[in-house]
Amino acid sequence: QAVRQAASEAARHADPDASAREHALDVLSVIESVLEDPGVIIAAQIHQMKGELVARLKMEGVEYEERMERLAEVEQPRPLKELLYGTFDVFRSHHPWVGTENVKPKAVARELYETGFDFRQYIEHHGLKRSEGTVLRYLGEAYKALVQTVPEDCRTEAIRDIEAWLGEMVRQVDSSLIDEWEKLRNPEDPSPEGKAADTGPERPDVTRNARAFKIMVRNEVFRWVQLLSRRRLDDHESLAEVPAVDDARRTGADVAEAIAPYWEEHSVLPTDSHARGGTFFVLDDSGGVGAARWPVVQTIADPKGHDEWVLEGQVDLEASREEGRAVVRLGAIRRL
């Protein structure tokens, strides 16, 4: 309780000048810091980070001894670590009854959002097949804590977006984890989310929660940008595995060839908060949920500000309903 109270106060003092999305993600990090550490997930994160670091250091020709030293320094992602520990120390100084309790900075739900993975992709990325239940329960607890802890006057639209996305992500895997809880909180709730448990054993229609579904689409499309930005063959192959608009088969070499002219002019492909901004993402959902597909365009925010490269795709609504996630088909990677 003490940790949650401190988290609520920290949420009130988050930087008001930060971008709306970064601020919302920081609030999510505050919330995650009050949850118990999911050891198996954190271990998987560290293992993944070490594997990527070793591969990079070997490519750079770093000697074995130095590689071992660098690996020993790897720790789990801990957003806002200094802020959270410092804020809680101040809170503790005024509330000595807190004792030895402390916050536990980590990034599981935040990592899921920032990488653009859906639940299945996240499990595969970290090799957590045997721990799916642990991941799902943790995300469910993160969702409940986000709903319960953030003061109403601090709930920006961006925070509500993350709340909707996280709740729907969990619901699509196992709606029982949150539906009964939401019914108890809002027994008279007439919204589709509040009635999700009435759909029986079938998976709820992922397109029905428009707010959450559009965030899923946006995250998936930006994941394409992230894959291109790293200029690695395995990432090109991952992008080639995305279903195509015309069902044609792609290879990693096809992806590399399509984006090659971009790299002739630019040394980096930005994936920062600016690059993820709404001005670079256009979703045409004018056809409504009854349409077969929604066109989508993600513009690459190149460092020179030309913004002339785009990734075009189509949201496959029927496939999305069947799979309980945003299924977006990749079209062209091209210069306008």
Rank of each mutant, 00 (worst) to 15 (best):
226 Q>S: 12
307 D>W: 13
68 M>H: 01
42 I>Y: 05
317 L>S: 01
292 A>Q: 08
59 M>D: 10
55 A>D: 05
126 H>N: 13
36 E>Y: 09
328 V>P: 05
168 E>F: 03
246 D>N: 15
40 V>I: 14
167 G>M: 07
211 R>A: 00
233 L>A: 15
234 D>P: 03
233 L>I: 09
282 V>N: 13
236 H>L: 13
87 T>H: 13
314 Q>A: 00
158 A>K: 10
89 D>H: 13
327 V>S: 11
166 L>C: 09
216 M>R: 11
127 G>K: 14
203 R>G: 00
256 A>G: 06
99 G>M: 15
312 E>K: 05
323 E>H: 14
103 V>N: 03
112 L>C: 11
279 T>H: 02
155 R>C: 10
194 G>R: 01
194 G>F: 00
81 K>D: 02
91 F>G: 12
48 Q>E: 11
227 L>D: 01
29 S>K: 11
261 P>N: 08
26 D>A: 15
178 I>G: 01
36 E>W: 09
177 L>N: 12
275 A>Q: 12
223 R>L: 07
9 E>T: 01
222 F>G: 04
142 A>Q: 02
321 R>W: 03
154 C>G: 06
96 P>T: 01
12 R>G: 03
253 A>G: 04
294 W>I: 11
10 A>E: 06
24 A>P: 14
28 L>S: 12
37 D>N: 11
281 F>W: 03
198 D>M: 10
248 A>K: 12
264 E>V: 11
295 P>Q: 09
155 R>K: 15
184 L>G: 04
210 A>H: 14
306 H>N: 12
85 Y>W: 06
321 R>P: 00
271 T>K: 09
63 E>M: 02
287 G>K: 00
155 R>N: 09
287 G>T: 02
82 E>D: 08
316 D>R: 13
2 A>I: 12
122 Y>L: 15
291 A>S: 13
124 E>W: 07
296 V>G: 07
75 E>I: 09
220 E>I: 05
23 H>R: 11
6 A>V: 07
145 A>F: 06
266 H>R: 12
246 D>C: 12
248 A>E: 13
90 V>A: 07
143 Y>E: 05
208 R>N: 02
225 V>K: 10
102 N>D: 15
110 R>L: 07
251 T>H: 08
247 D>Q: 08
283 L>N: 06
232 R>E: 06
46 I>F: 08
165 W>I: 10
235 D>Q: 13
218 R>D: 04
225 V>Q: 15
187 P>S: 08
164 A>S: 00
169 M>P: 05
242 V>M: 14
117 F>D: 10
170 V>I: 05
37 D>T: 15
119 F>S: 01
221 V>E: 03
138 Y>L: 11
207 T>S: 07
56 R>I: 01
190 P>V: 00
206 V>Q: 03
78 R>E: 07
332 A>E: 12
297 V>W: 07
17 D>V: 12
79 P>T: 04
20 A>D: 12
175 S>N: 05
126 H>R: 15
189 D>E: 00
170 V>Y: 02
168 E>I: 06
88 F>S: 10
186 N>L: 00
308 E>H: 11
93 S>M: 00
34 V>D: 07
129 K>R: 13
208 R>T: 02
5 Q>V: 04
72 A>P: 06
227 L>H: 04
274 H>N: 14
164 A>I: 00
314 Q>Y: 03
333 I>T: 10
